[in-house]
């Protein structure tokens, strides 16, 4: 019994950055933009969070809450900044979504590792936050505050998408922008807002990795594929924030399971499992032709009113 509870707790802790990344990508894809730059946005958020805490501490700041707020703010802003570049290129300049997203991943990964290497060179200090700041991410109850916040965010976004008017508009934009446009919905505004805010949420996911998983240290290549796993999670959760909560628990469980349950299979198969099940889900939904559980219909195509 004790093992199961331990496993669950560890799964939640490992799954939270995935949940955040997936929530950001769900918002983005719901507006009809498939952003393959999640990994890049998470890097930008991760390095921004550590850097904000580091500079606040170096400037003599000792208040833990201020440090956390600054980290959160900058992680969000830099994630959103990456998404803004993407949104501008894709929505306004009508660039290809897949290509733009991949470039954002290249850029964001470079940005994270570059800033993470540059600050120690410039200041002569290791890029790490103070112990008081680290303590802010200690567990309150079974988890740290970011876990609770992520679940609340997922519930809020689910409520927003399925039970509010703007949420309905956003889903309409993602399914069929031309119809939404005719219904008087401002397609461009919805796409921009959803993509940029989604990028900000991915940035917070990056903050979780650098501040909680890496304990407030900058570690090169720390995001290491979490962004791509988040993209997979979006499919498994069938673009639904509520479902993303338990799917992130499953993915988190697969990530840490080998430490708790010894099965006679190599540990790499645990790492592989999320991707395999995602493919299975993808194939099954396409076979059943379920519209509700498949990708928002306009995903991947840019909307150009004049081309109708």
């Amino acid at each position: 019994m004790n093992v199961i509870i331990k496993l669950l707790i560890a799964a939640v802790i490992a799954g939270t950055p995935l949940l955040l990344g997936a929530l950001g990508e769900i918002m983005t894809e719901r507006s009809g933009n498939i952003n393959l730059g999640v990994e890049g946005e998470m890097y930008m958020g991760a390095v921004a969070a550590v850097a904000a805490g580091f500079f606040y501490n170096s400037a003599g700041g000792t208040n833990g809450i201020t440090a956390v707020l600054l980290s959160g703010l900058f992680a969000f802003l830099f994630g959103a900044l990456g998404a803004l570049i993407y949104a501008f290129l894709v929505i306004t300049m009508r660039a290809n979504q897949n290509v733009t997203g991949l470039i954002l991943t290249i850029f964001g990964t470079g940005f994270g590792n570059f800033i993470g290497a540059l600050i120690p060179v410039r200041t002569g200090k290791t890029l790490v936050v103070s112990d008081t700041t680290k303590a802010m991410y200690n567990n309150v109850g079974p988890f740290n505050w970011m876990v609770y916040m992520s679940v609340l965010l997922a519930l809020f976004l689910g409520y927003f998408l399925y039970f509010t008017r703007p949420g309905l508009s956003l889903r309409a934009v993602g399914e069929n922008p031309a119809t939404a446009d005719q219904a008087g919905i401002n397609v461009t505004k919805h796409k921009y807002l959803a993509t940029v805010l989604g990028g900000g949420i991915c940035g917070i996911g990056g903050m979780y990795i650098s501040m909680v998983s890496q304990n407030g240290n900058w570690v090169d290549n720390c995001v290491g594929g979490y962004g791509w796993l988040a993209v997979a999670l979006v499919i498994f959760a069938s673009w639904n924030p509520f479902r993303a909560i338990w799917v992130s628990l499953v993915f988190g469980g697969l990530k840490i399971m080998r430490l708790y349950v010894r099965l006679p299979i190599p540990s790499q198969f645990y790492d592989m499992a999320p991707f395999i099940v995602t493919i299975v889900v993808l194939v099954i939904t396409s076979m059943s032709g379920s519209k509700e559980k498949s990708q928002p219909k306009s995903c991947g195509q840019n909307y150009f009113r004049e081309e109708r």
Binding site: I34, N98, F275, L282, V283, S286, M287, S294, Q295
Partner: peptide, 11 residues
């Protein structure tokens, strides 16, 4: 079945 190839190849 028209399975989405972007996500499939990515995985």
């Amino acid at each position: 079945w028209g399975t989405n190839e972007t996500l499939f190849t990515l995985m």
